[in-house]
Each structure stands twice: as C-alpha cells, then as structure tokens.
C-alpha cells in the first residue's frame, strides 16, 4: 500500500517538476497531463474511484485539450525561448526561495501535528450515495456550480472569439499608425 503511494508520488511530483522546468511548452503540457493522471491514481489509491474518474474526465480529458489548444494557438515562431534574460534568472531564484519557505512552513506544521490514529477501514461511498448526497443535501450548490460553469464557458467563448469591431477600429486609432497584421 505504502510503496504504491511512493510510486504514485514519484510519478506525480516528478512529472510536475519536469513540466515546470522544461523550456519546451508542449513537453510541459504533456508532462502536466501525466501529473494529473498521477493525481487520479492517488484518488484511486485512496479509494475515491468516483473522484478519480472525474479527475480523469475533467483534467486528463478536457482541460488538457484546452491547454494544448492554447499552446498551439499562441505558438510563436519558436516554442523554445532561447534567450534567458537576467530578470527571469532573478525571478526564478526568488521563486525557488519563496516556494522553499512555503514548503518548510507547511512541512513543519504537518510534522508537528498529531492526527487521530488512521481510520482502520476506508470509508466507502458508492456512486449511488454520492449521487443522492449531491442531489439532496448539496442540490443548491450543484445548481450554482452548473450556473458558474455555463457562465464561465460562455464568457470564455466570448473572450476568445475574434472581435470583428476590434479589427476594424484599429486603423482608425489616430495616435498610432495602422499596424500590419499578418
């Protein structure tokens, strides 16, 4: 049980760290998909099958596609930015320091806490129970989440859609010379 957890953690953390370190965006995105799959594996390990399937559907299935599309749509001449500016070096250094401090604070808090002894048996939650809980106790929240999703997706569509007015109004911008858009 515990060795499996270590394997999963290795997969999850290793691919996440590699994704954040690599310079090739597509590789990063693909590695993140692996990392999300690792999170799903963790849920399976912990006995939360339903959540694991939701994770696979939403992250590995849907969000990954959106991410890959975003990467491809915003691709410039080269995916790998070769020039490393001094500013970004400094930022990376502070980023690692800050992240390490946060990690230290968290770890100290976790290690100094004594939890109740672990539950001997895994709590079970069948799909039926989850469905009933969602629809009865959390029915209102479910509705709101549905609304949020609808609004967010509509908003995303509008944001990402090509704005015809914007293209037409650009040349009439008096202060700037008309830009040549490829």
């Amino acid at each position: 049980m515990i060795p499996a957890l270590f394997l999963i953690a290795l997969l999850m953390l290793g691919s996440a760290a590699a994704a954040m370190l690599l310079r090739n965006l597509i590789h990063s995105a693909l590695l993140l998909i692996v990392s999300w799959a690792g999170v799903a594996a963790f849920y399976l390990w912990a006995g939360a099958e339903f959540v694991a399937f939701a994770q696979i559907l939403v992250y590995v299935g849907a969000i990954s596609m959106v991410v890959l599309f975003a990467v491809l749509l915003t691709r410039q001449n080269q995916i790998i930015d070769t020039v490393i500016e001094p500013a970004s070096r400094a930022r990376a250094a502070t980023a690692f320091t800050v992240a390490a401090c946060v990690a230290a604070v968290f770890s100290a808090a976790i290690l100094s806490t004594k939890f109740h002894p672990a539950a001997p048996e895994a709590p079970t939650a069948s799909v039926k129970e989850i469905g009933l809980t969602l629809m009865n106790e959390h029915g209102g929240a479910l509705l709101i989440v549905g609304l949020i999703l609808t609004v967010a997706l509509l908003g995303a569509t509008i944001l990402a859609a090509t704005d015809r007015d914007e293209d037409q109004s650009q040349p009439s911008d008096a202060a700037l010379p008309p830009k040549e858009t490829p």
Partner: peptide
C-alpha cells in the same frame, strides 16, 4: 502515518506549482 505522507506529497505538489507560477514567464 499515511495521512502525514499524503499531506507531505500534497505540499510538494503545491510548492512545485507555486515555484512554477512564480518563476515562469509564459
């Protein structure tokens, strides 16, 4: 305990994410 382990793993993931969000320019 396993709970400690899980929490430490999640800390690791959180900090990797934090470092990435702070460091990357993309």
């Amino acid at each position: 305990s396993p709970l400690h382990l899980c929490l430490l793993i999640s800390t690791g993931l959180f900090c990797i994410g934090l470092a990435g969000a702070l460091a990357r320019s993309n």
